[in-house]
């Protein structure tokens, strides 16, 4: 285990109560400040892996170690596939929730939530209810909620999969901007080759049934990346490489 890791997985496996083996033999080190994408087809256990890192599911084999110390509730931010907002609460109240659950006084939590909303481009929408927000804006609120505790580790489970492409591109850029500024660690689950290449420093390609790591690729393009990266030859070359790895990972399952 590398002592510099934020979190370190060794031989992690998960077997559901139904007997299905979701993932097995996962060895993975995530360094502080890393942006890691977990890429794979549906059913390869990447969400399960993310939930185990978050502590929402227990591994049935192997171990998950935190060399720098066990994370507290405020050290991990989680963004779900759906915005997962409380419909009865305003954008600001939704973002303030993690702070209030931790016992922070209401006024302070509210002001921190408001400034976090501004950081994700939602200034002026503090009092809006989720229903009045578009899909992209709801996702921004969800992102603000995950970041409001200033977590060391941000876990994202296909967060932009349900959005249209233009909105997704915009949110990708904004996420990269936030990551460049704050340098929290990100583990980003996706099934999009293009999204993983655009965002991540490292791409972990997973193979299905049972879920396992097939390959690890580095994307050495410089940060900050912008729209020009999306149309560069470098980007296309990385996409080709990752696509081939993904195709190879799925080959036995397709046969």
């Amino acid at each position: 285990m590398s002592a510099a890791s934020l979190v370190s997985l060794r031989g992690v496996a998960k077997r559901y109560a139904t007997g299905t083996l979701a993932v097995r033999g996962i060895d993975l080190d995530i360094a502080p400040g890393d942006f890691v994408a977990l890429l794979g087809p549906s059913g390869c256990g990447k969400s399960t892996l993310l939930r185990m890192v978050a502590g929402l599911a227990e591994p049935t084999g192997g171990r998950i170690a935190w060399p720098g110390g066990q994370p507290s509730a405020r050290d991990i931010g989680f963004v779900f596939q759906e915005p997962t907002l409380m419909p009865w609460a305003t954008a600001q109240a939704n973002v303030a929730l993690p702070l209030e659950l931790a016992g922070m006084p209401r006024a302070e939590a509210a002001s921190r939530a408001a400034s976090m909303l501004a950081r994700v481009g939602l200034q002026g929408f503090e009092k809006a209810y989720p229903r009045a927000l578009s899909g992209g804006m709801k996702m921004r609120v969800s992102l603000a909620r995950a970041l409001v505790t200033k977590p060391r580790l941000l876990l994202m489970d296909e967060p932009f999969a349900a959005l249209d492409e233009i909105t997704r591109f915009r949110l990708n850029n904004d996420l990269l901007e936030l990551w460049t500024a704050e340098r929290f660690t990100v583990v980003f689950v996706t099934h999009s080759v293009f999204e993983s290449v655009y965002l991540a420093q490292r791409i972990v390609v997973m193979a299905p049934r049972p879920g396992r790591i097939h390959a690890e690729l580095a994307v050495d393009a410089p940060a900050p990346r912008g729209e020009e990266f999306r149309t560069s030859a470098d980007y296309a070359a990385h996409c080709r490489e990752v696509s081939q790895a993904l195709a190879a990972a799925m080959a036995p399952a397709a046969a």
């Binding site: 939930r51 509730a73 991990i76 989680f78 409380m86 929730l97 659950l101």
Partner: peptide, 23 residues
């Protein structure tokens, strides 16, 4: 997912009831 979120942030049973289940 909201239940998971509350769990992630270490919410007590009472907080889950009052802030999530009842609304």
């Amino acid at each position: 997912n909201l239940l998971d979120l509350f769990r992630l942030y270490g919410a007590s049973r009472w907080q889950v009831l009052w802030r999530l289940r009842l609304p």
